[in-house]
Simulated assay, not measured.
Amino acid sequence: MIDQQAAKSFCRLATLTVCAVYFLILVGGIVRASGAGMGCPDWPTCFGQWVPPTEEAQLPADYHERFALGYENTQFNPIKTWTEYLNRLTGVSIGILIFLTAIRSRIYLQGDKAVFYLSLTVFGLVGFQGWLGSTVVASNLKPVIITLHMLLALFIVALLIYILARSQKSHWGYFDISVLPDKFNKVLVAAMLMTLLQVAMGTQVREAVDMIANEHAYIGRQYWRDDFPIIFYVHRSFASIILFTNGWLFWKIFQGFGRTTLIFKVGLLIMGLIVAAILAGISLDRLGVPPIAQPIHLLMANLIFGTQFFLYIYLKYSKQSTQNRV
């Protein structure tokens, strides 16, 4: 029997860890949108130091040659350097949180061993993610490596959500899922696949925007839109399909459940995130690609998938609970 107090403590820690990973995704988006990815040209140190410099005078005279920044303008920029450095500190902090999550998950060895072993798996994946981060720097921000880095973060957070949901399934109250249409789960799975496809297209758009930004030396953002590739317009149009699909899901939840139920709140959150993502996308399209809109758009996309995935797991365990009561 799992100690209830220990289970609640694990839930709080796991929830904090999930939120921290999403915060790291936001910070990573800020790094990329601001062009600060090579603010620290080496890894794990920054300009050969564990605490990066704040002014050029603190660097050796030959730092341009010693640290090949990969840009035509290799002038030291303290804002970009510290933006990237804070991104790394956030990553280290999350590594610590996931390590603590893995340690705390030992309480499930007597009740649900999968929670413990999946927690260890996540810890191992975070180590691999750290190595991949060093590869991003070593590859001079190669777009394919950056995309892999982001997709792995998406997979890690999905695993964390599954661990959190599985560890708390016995604490969820019973509710009658028979009020939902039989095809609800299939449409939900289709909605998740659509989100993943949209994220994949979004990464291609981001790679194109990175190239455009580099060509424009990260200035004149109002002219970037003229060079957007075809995939951008496909990505933009596909958002309406995602909106209507998830709108149908929420309508069915709205019809079947009270406003205070968890499933209603999760459905409402999904719709709110989709609207926020669309508004951020519109601002990128119509307001000259404002830097803050890029990381917000990325964060919303990741939150949409994570919330959809949580809803799917929640319904899965609720269905099992219903079957056990029959």
Rank of each mutant, 00 (worst) to 15 (best):
D182A: 13
L159T: 04
R166T: 02
V187P: 01
L197C: 09
L196D: 02
V179P: 00
Y174G: 03
W172A: 07
D176N: 15
K186E: 11
Y162R: 08
I177D: 06
L197N: 07
L193N: 06
Q198V: 09
A158G: 10
T195L: 01
L188M: 11
F155Y: 08
L154G: 11
D182Q: 12
W172C: 02
L196S: 02
G202Y: 10
V179I: 10
S170M: 09
G202F: 09
D176A: 07
H149Q: 13
R166S: 11
G202E: 14
V157G: 06
L180F: 01
L197M: 13
L154K: 03
L180E: 01
M150C: 08
K183M: 04
I177F: 00
A153G: 15
A190P: 00
A158F: 05
T195E: 10
S170D: 15
L196K: 01
L196C: 13
F175M: 14
D182T: 06
D176C: 08
A153E: 06
M192D: 01
M201I: 10
M201C: 05
I163E: 05
M150G: 07
I161R: 02
L197D: 05
M194P: 03
D176M: 12
A200E: 03
Q168K: 13
I161M: 15
L197T: 14
I163M: 07
L180T: 02
M150I: 07
Y174A: 10
K183S: 15
Q168H: 09
L160C: 11
A158N: 11
I156W: 03
I161Y: 08
V157H: 03
G202L: 08
L159H: 00
T195D: 10
L154P: 00
I156L: 08
Q198R: 02
L151G: 07
K169R: 15
Y162N: 05
I163T: 12
